[in-house]
Nucleic acid binder design. Structure first.
Lengths: 351, 351
DNA sequence: AGAAGATTCGCAAACGTTTGCTATTATACA
DNA sequence: TGTATAATAGCAAACGTTTGCGAATCTTCT
């Protein structure tokens, strides 16, 4: 069927081992024969079979990206950074959507191990049992995790400074004078979100005049943000500010607020986390914590490539990337005097 | 290193061929020995090496998805559909971002062919030269294209009914009384966008009272939509409606309009294409043409799986999936009388 | 010119499977 | 009991590479 190394060897009158050497590096092969072989290979349009090569070298030049859902713009951005880095390292990237389902996740990993990928970049293993994590750590292929797992230092990790991000959000809302503050987040097992929550709450509680936020947990997607906000507005109609665990939840909160006839930021201040592209597009432009998603994906794959390179020294690497607050127009100063000063109050008559 | 079929064979006292048969299907192997082998394999935690298997079977159980940029929510949705279908077919999916660069695209294909993927799903080959397309068609692996390529019927195709979608947008804007209409789109080579443009323009031109739209071509992403709209507003300040070739461009148009102090839909009507999730989130919620992105990805991979299944009968398959107009709040009736009737005019005093 | 060393290249094993063929044993039937 | 047939399992080739080793040739130096 396809043209193999044997065809090239026969056609250029040398042994297959010479063809292999000529095409791969050229050491130990005469310059003239090398040129001849290369020419023949080009003429026959020879494509080395990387499956066969992988079998003998033990490297497949494939990396895997296991994340919850590529439709989350955060992961799309991250995936792009990862893919670019993989490509630069001459690897390709297989995509797996786990939906954070532990069974699905382990099933993916099994399949990836059978396929002998050179490394795996995972969104989260926090949902896995301790035993499953141990099995993972012992599986032989390098694994980089995207959230800091304080428990298991067997893995390399890349993460944004989520805790600091949460703290930034808290300081910002406090600075604007908010006291009745809510926080929308996901289940406790979710590492990233939990770190944000921790930073947020502890900063609020350690203020000169401590604040105890209302914390609601649920699905951390658009509909989750929407539902939690509606629930919040029912139970605590007096909240003045919401910190959403991610931008997509914040978008859900915007929708819920609109449905209830509330305006942002006039009636409700809102701050997100992630700074995905559409955060600047929605009305009003969303104030949020920026995390360098592309760079995280890129950095994670670079670690993976290094780990895959020399199988012997498998020392885990940990990288934390900085976050920053992007101030837009979804939060307002609470005190009326100040709000007139910054001209963010549309109802001066009512002040 | 890893446990191989030989280890299982030795441990259970049979030949490796028996192990292979026992684990794969069980034909021609005694029930008792089968059970014994299975037990041993489980005890040793044996994982068959799919690289080796792929070498002999000629199938890698990998499919590839070559698209312009996963960060485009359209492609993220599509990728999710594709991945789900691939997983259901026991394949995994490698992700490639081509940025629609012909060189990059061919480079990806070369690499994928070397890796012997079982099939390739491509966003677009329209940017490729006729010769490159011919090479692609002859490469031996099944290829499904995402846009209808009227030229080359060698490939299978899956597409939304883009032309009808463009026509729907045109009819809708005409129905609202618009006459000064602009259309933002990408380069002529872009199959999808061109079909939309064709349907849009021909419908406008074949109206009782024909309209000639202003067509602007540029980058078909957020910043492209933004820049084109600014250019449009500079050159044609009297336009009343814009049809953006996709939602992301529409979002760019929203941003540009806001920057120029124009309100949507009061000062400018806007209709998009795709109906990505955030179309319903932005302010105002975007009227757009829905195309079934998840289903398209799913359908394309199903075709690929079928094609990969029996290598002999390689008859291309073509599937067109329907679109529909989602009416939200980004377009207004032009005539003032009507607009009062439908209460979409916020400035009754000026009417 | 002869020896030592370098260069070039072929041979064959190895990677871990699947699978056609054959040998052996068990089963059925006359 | 003997023979035809079916069930079971082993042997070995094949898939397409890479790579260690050794043979042959060429180069260089004394």
């Amino acid at each position: 069927m396809a043209v193999t190394i044997k065809d090239v060897a026969r056609e250029s009158g040398v042994n297959i081992s010479t063809v292999s050497r000529a095409l791969n590096h050229g050491y130990g092969v005469n310059e003239q024969t090398r040129e001849r072989v290369v020419a023949v290979a080009a003429r026959l349009d020879y494509r080395p079979n990387r499956v066969a090569r992988g079998l003998v070298t033990g490297r497949t030049h494939s990396l895997a990206l296991v994340l919850s859902d590529i439709r989350n713009p955060f992961f799309a951005e991250l995936a792009r950074g990862a893919e670019d880095a993989a490509r630069a390292g001459n690897c390709d990237l297989v995509l797996c959507n786990s939906d954070l389902d532990p069974d699905k996740q382990m099933q993916y990993v099994r399949s990836l191990l059978e396929k002998r990928v050179d490394g795996i970049l995972m969104n989260s293993v926090a949902v896995l049992s301790r035993e499953q994590q141990a099995r993972l750590a012992a599986c032989g292929v390098p694994i980089v995790l995207l959230n800091r797992s304080a428990l298991n230092r067997a893995f390399s990790t890349v993460c944004a400074d989520n805790e600091t991000g949460g703290a930034l959000a808290a300081k910002y809302l406090l600075g604007l004078g908010h006291r009745k503050i809510a926080h929308l987040t996901g289940p406790r097992e979710h590492g990233n979100l939990s770190d944000r929550t921790r930073g947020f709450i502890s900063t609020l509680q350690s203020a000169k005049d401590p604040v105890q936020p209302i914390v609601l947990r649920g699905k951390f997607n658009f509909s989750g943000g929407c539902e939690l906000t509606k629930q919040l507005l029912d139970e605590h109609p007096d909240v003045t500010a919401i910190f959403a665990g991610n931008d997509v939840m914040a978008f859900g909160a915007v929708r819920a607020a609109l449905d209830r006839g509330l305006r942002i930021p006039e009636d409700l201040s809102l701050i997100g986390f992630d700074n995905i592209e559409f955060a600047s597009v929605i009305h009003p432009p969303l104030t949020t914590i920026h995390q360098p998603m592309y760079e995280m994906g890129h950095a994670a794959i670079e670690i993976l490539l290094r780990l895959a390179r020399d199988k012997n020294k498998q020392v885990p690497e940990h990288r934390t990337l900085g976050v920053e607050l992007i101030e837009r127009q979804s939060c307002r100063q609470l005190s009326c005097i100040n709000s007139i000063a910054v001209n963010s109050c549309n109802r001066p008559a009512s002040c």
